[in-house]
Computed example of a mutant assay.
Amino acid sequence: MLTLSLIGIGCGDPRQLTLAAIAAINDADLILIPRKGIAKSDLAELRRAICAQALSNDRTRIAEFDLPVRDAGVEDYRKGVDDWHDAIAAIWSQEITRHLGGEGRVALLIWGDPSLYDSSLRIAQRLDPRPSIEMIPGITSIQALCTAHALPLNEIGEPFLVTTGRRLREGGWPAGVDTIVVMLDGGAAFQALDPEGLKIWWGAYLGMPDQILMAGDLAETGPRIVAARQEARAQHGWIMDCYVLKRA
């Protein structure tokens, strides 16, 4: 029997690990760590640091692999993502077979929580034979952002919507809500909105030593965020950020 554990590890701060996550890390026979190229080597190093701190046995093996790059030039977005997930599943299968054969416990450390804007579960379901899958919840970037800003996410009795930068850019402000959370935004999609009456709470590298926070009226704060994103990306080679927008 092969078991695959998708372990939510929060946003990079080892103190965000739950006791359940630490137990699952120590139960694993193999931990797979993806490498995303030199520009994002920090992400692999953070996973290594979490393993070094959380592991209390010398039985668990750690194996690293190069993560395939999604072809952003594919016109059909969904097909491009499907092809990318197939390629990742093939590498997972290859590494699991190489190190474990057909049985044991393999774990992947997932940023935030594996249920929110993460495709690891979808990729795991493509493995053949399909392993038994367990998920360990983790602190999400949304929680880390609101905590860092001391911000209550929802207004009393009111809904909020979680969306992506691409959807916000293409569709504008979603109907029926006054609070939105925007994730996976590679291009500061809030610039496509009329800033009148909007406030933003933004954070990058949440939970990490290089955490950056900004908040205020979108008209004034938006340009400062754009400049900070450009500077941070130039410095680190990558950026992970998200933000909350509220309409008065």
Score class of each variant (00 low, 15 high):
54 A>H: 00
31 I>M: 05
219 A>D: 09
177 V>W: 05
51 C>E: 12
23 A>W: 10
43 L>I: 13
8 G>E: 11
111 W>V: 09
163 T>W: 02
70 R>T: 05
23 A>Y: 09
139 I>T: 13
88 I>T: 01
227 A>R: 10
27 D>K: 14
36 K>R: 14
23 A>E: 14
128 D>I: 13
155 E>L: 15
149 H>G: 01
40 K>A: 13
131 P>T: 10
182 V>F: 09
213 L>I: 07
208 M>W: 01
64 E>T: 03
174 P>C: 03
102 G>L: 11
172 G>W: 01
182 V>S: 07
140 T>L: 06
134 E>W: 04
243 Y>T: 06
221 T>W: 08
188 A>M: 12
126 R>Y: 06
72 A>Q: 15
117 Y>D: 04
192 A>L: 05
15 R>H: 13
117 Y>T: 07
131 P>A: 12
12 G>K: 00
72 A>L: 13
132 S>E: 15
181 V>E: 00
220 E>D: 14
202 W>C: 01
232 A>G: 08
89 A>M: 11
180 I>K: 03
15 R>M: 11
108 L>V: 14
73 G>C: 08
200 I>T: 09
217 D>K: 10
242 C>Q: 08
100 L>K: 04
168 L>R: 01
148 A>P: 01
19 L>H: 10
231 E>V: 13
198 L>F: 07
6 L>Q: 06
110 I>S: 09
26 N>P: 08
73 G>I: 07
38 I>S: 13
220 E>Y: 10
203 G>R: 03
191 Q>K: 11
118 D>S: 09
236 H>M: 12
125 Q>E: 14
174 P>L: 07
47 R>W: 01
53 Q>R: 15
41 S>T: 13
184 L>V: 09
127 L>D: 04
178 D>T: 11
53 Q>D: 12
48 R>W: 02
144 A>M: 10
215 A>R: 07
168 L>I: 04
106 V>S: 05
99 H>Q: 09
232 A>Y: 00
118 D>Q: 01
185 D>F: 01
212 I>W: 03
156 I>F: 15
193 L>S: 07
148 A>F: 10
193 L>V: 02
14 P>M: 10
5 S>K: 14
182 V>C: 05
91 I>H: 00
66 D>Y: 03
16 Q>T: 09
126 R>Q: 09
56 S>A: 14
166 R>Y: 04
166 R>T: 12
206 L>Y: 08
76 D>T: 11
30 L>R: 07
80 G>M: 04
97 T>S: 12
61 R>K: 13
164 T>M: 06
137 P>D: 06
149 H>C: 06
65 F>H: 05
100 L>A: 03
133 I>E: 10
27 D>S: 14
4 L>G: 07
34 P>R: 05
23 A>C: 08
110 I>C: 15
132 S>G: 12
162 V>P: 02
64 E>Q: 10
75 E>G: 11
68 P>T: 07
160 F>A: 02
153 L>M: 10
188 A>N: 15
191 Q>M: 10
220 E>S: 12
164 T>Y: 06
93 S>D: 12
127 L>T: 08
248 A>L: 12
41 S>A: 14
67 L>K: 09
209 P>S: 00
129 P>K: 10
37 G>P: 03
240 M>S: 11
145 L>D: 00
41 S>G: 06
224 R>L: 14
75 E>M: 13
9 I>Q: 08
196 E>R: 12
176 G>M: 04
219 A>K: 13
178 D>I: 02
245 L>T: 03
